[in-house]
Nucleic acid binder design. Structure first.
Lengths: 211, 211
DNA sequence: AGAATAGTGTCTCTCAGACATTATTTG
DNA sequence: CAAATAATGTCTGAGAGACACTATTCT
């Protein structure tokens, strides 16, 4: 029984130059999501981590399975099944040398190989969505950050201005972050640095639309 | 290049006997999620629909991709990748004759083959979650239903009693359903029948946990 | 002193949640 | 008329959203 080729692809987001960016690999005249074929006895997530390891200088990244694509009619590469993962790394994460991958702002993506623009769009929708009810946003920030930086991150991803006082009230009320004793100095008044509390239970207090 | 066997499995939920039930196929001494191998040039969703077609008398069912499992270490069937779909059919949907599948209440599942109990648990979590912010619950009801039946459906799935007045206020305020001119008679005062409005924009008004 | 950024409090309005009685039908 | 189920309204408290000024540092 001949079966179909299996690969994982990764939609890796990060913040760079005040914009949300995705990492893309060059392909003839186009770009594509980085990916690898899954090994014979390899777990899917293992393969996804292997892809990340070829791209970035980093031990850890937020990684989550996004969706599995496998419609031969839609996919240029006949008969390939692609398990797509969604990954986040903090701003400033370095790329490994020797790879031809490049960051591209999601707001103005280059031309991607068949169907992959939709995949990126879906990943972005998921990121925005998760940002609202989970603590995923901290994965895009360094370990310590100011409230202004945090707010800025949210604003970039949601493409929406947020009110500073309301933002602070709510983020602090959720006790998802804690003060450090450090300040970041720069232009203007120094800002207090905060740290994410992974132990904090990020309870979802969504107001139910339906009962 | 030898690649891994690919199959789809379906977690099919329905309401029966006042309980949420899943459809299971018999396996030696155990039960398993119904599934099929994916064809050479078949789309994944196509394969999932094919599985449904072997099980139930019905043209349409709510179908959504749930998760893809493919960890050889965890999976009994070495080197199989399983794309699991999540499906809902209305109460009373008939099974096709000649299959050995059986309904089982999710609250007291029989013994499932390796790892599949977790898959059902995940599907249930997703169902509960979606119930709160989307209109997925209507997929478990016939086309016309009373508000009491709808409330009952929610209560069964969420395992939680709901207040009748608040339930009605909110469900009606969302204008996700519309009155019909029909009544259902039975014991006690006849109840008005309602119908789901698929055209209604089920806008998610989730209260953000994080700004 | 001026520019830059950080940090803080109040009011209003909406809506979730708690709660009990009346209405209509059948046997 | 008793039993069964359907249908309906009000109050309270929490929190989202709108809004403007003071504080601290650097040059």
């Amino acid at each position: 029984m001949a079966t179909r080729a299996l690969m994982v692809n990764v939609v890796l987001f990060s913040l760079r130059d005040e914009a949300l960016q995705v990492l893309l690999a060059p392909r003839v005249e186009r770009w594509e999501l980085p990916g690898e074929t899954v090994g014979e006895s390899e777990a899917l997530e293992e393969a996804a981590n292997r892809v990340l390891a070829t791209l970035i200088r980093r031990r850890e990244a937020y990684l989550e399975q996004l969706y599995t694509y496998g419609d031969p009619a839609r996919d240029a590469r006949q008969a390939t099944v692609s398990v797509v993962y969604f990954a986040l790394v903090p701003a400033g994460t370095g790329l490994l040398p020797g790879t031809a991958v490049q960051w591209a702002a999601v707001a103005s993506l280059p031309s991607l190989v068949g169907g992959q623009a939709d995949i990126v769009a879906y990943a972005l929708r998921r990121l925005r969505y998760k940002l609202e009810y989970s603590a995923v946003g901290f994965q895009l920030l360094p370990q310590e950050f100011t409230l202004s930086e945090l707010q800025h991150t949210y604003e970039i991803i949601l493409s929406e201005r947020l009110d500073k006082r309301n933002f602070r009230r709510r983020i602090l009320a959720s006790s998802i972050i804690e003060e450090t004793s450090l300040l970041r100095t720069g232009e203007g008044r120094p800002a207090r640095l905060y740290r994410y509390r992974p132990d904090a239970v990020a309870e979802v207090k969504a107001r139910r639309l339906f009962p």
